[in-house]
């Protein structure tokens, strides 16, 4: 392109110039950028706070970590195991259920039934976690004792995974119960988000599948899932985030122990990081507080990592497609 440079000034360019000056566009894009940056800043702020307050927590004298551990690693590993075991149990239960419910609401149920069901699921999200904790500890735990026994009897003898189903607790206040309560708590958010992305699938693509003679389920597999994949991962990640960070329900349901064990049916199990912070926060010494913050930092980084990995896996398959 050869741009006329000198004539440009006296050319009658006025009518071609932007009439509205684009001020609105600039204000909006500035505001959007600001909002985006402020989230990054908040995240960085949290990280810096955790790092500064927590870094000394990694190397305290042995007695601070006592009585059950001698070093930070010994202190945090059982907590991590507790945190992730409970969260993974929650995801295993909640994710298929949530996807199923979302799909029924968006593609199978007639509208007069889908709308109220969606509403009730959303209501579940509004119940405070103390209520779930109370319910889990005083009602659900007892009801689940027979299931614990059953799991132990049937899955216990299997090699490898049998370790997960060791001697069952007679009270039922176990990691498994905590995981189930967490599953109910994260169900609404996963359902709500996936329902939304499922129902956004372009009609054009759905009809393309149906016109080829796809059944409804085949149509869902060909168009809805591929279209919604990224949203489904986001939903699971938000659910996982809530499960990892949940304090009250875990604190109340689980009877806490400190032995590192893979038995999700055990009488006492390591609690989660968040619940542990809530438990110890009051009896804090300055030293213990540093340690607690350090555990928080570990959780923060691990959550970040899990999220990042999930994104990467989804992105990879999409990139492969776009190659």
């Amino acid at each position: 392109m050869t741009a006329p440079t000198t004539e440009a000034e006296d050319a009658p360019a006025a009518s071609w110039a932007s009439v509205r000056g684009g001020a609105g566009d600039r204000i909006f894009s500035g505001a959007a950028l600001l909002a985006g940056l402020s989230i990054l800043a908040a995240l960085a702020g949290v990280f810096i706070f955790l790092a500064i307050k927590g870094v000394t927590g990694f190397t305290k004298p042995a007695e601070v970590y006592g009585p059950h551990a001698e070093s930070f690693v010994g202190y945090v590993v059982p907590l991590l195991v507790g945190t992730f075991t409970a969260s993974i149990i929650a995801l295993i239960i909640a994710v298929p259920l949530a996807f199923g419910i979302a799909l029924v609401i968006s593609h199978y149920a007639p509208r007069w039934i889908a709308a109220p069901v969606a509403y009730v699921i959303d209501l579940l999200a509004a119940v405070p976690s103390v209520v779930y904790g109370l319910w889990g500890a005083f009602y659900l735990a007892k009801k689940l004792v027979p299931m614990h026994q059953w799991l132990h009897d049937h899955l216990g003898p299997i090699p490898v995974i049998g370790h997960l189903f060791g001697e069952p607790s007679p009270a039922g206040r176990t990691l498994l119960t905590a995981g189930i309560v967490l599953a109910i708590m994260i169900l609404p958010i996963i359902t709500a988000i996936t329902r939304e992305v499922f129902s956004r699938t372009p009609r054009l693509h759905e009809e393309a599948a149906l016109a080829l003679g796809a059944t409804r389920w085949e149509m869902v597999r060909m168009t809805v899932f591929p279209y919604a994949r990224s949203g489904m991962v986001s939903a699971v990640m938000l659910g996982l985030g809530r499960a990892l960070g949940e304090t009250m329900a875990v604190t109340m349901v689980l009877s806490v122990g400190f032995d590192l064990s893979w038995n999700v049916l055990a009488t006492s199990s390591p609690t989660s990081i968040a619940a542990n912070i809530a438990l110890k926060y009051k009896e804090r010494s300055a030293d213990l507080l540093n340690v607690l913050v350090a555990t928080g930092l570990v959780l923060f980084l691990l959550t970040f990592l899990v999220n990042f990995l999930a994104r990467w896996i989804v992105g990879r398959s999409e990139r492969r497609m776009a190659r």
């Binding site: 054009l204 693509h205 009809e207 393309a208 599948a209 016109a211 060909m222 168009t223 591929p226 279209y227």
Partner: peptide
């Protein structure tokens, strides 16, 4: 269909 709709 009226609008081309290959599976994306």
């Amino acid at each position: 269909f009226q609008r081309p709709n290959p599976f994306p």
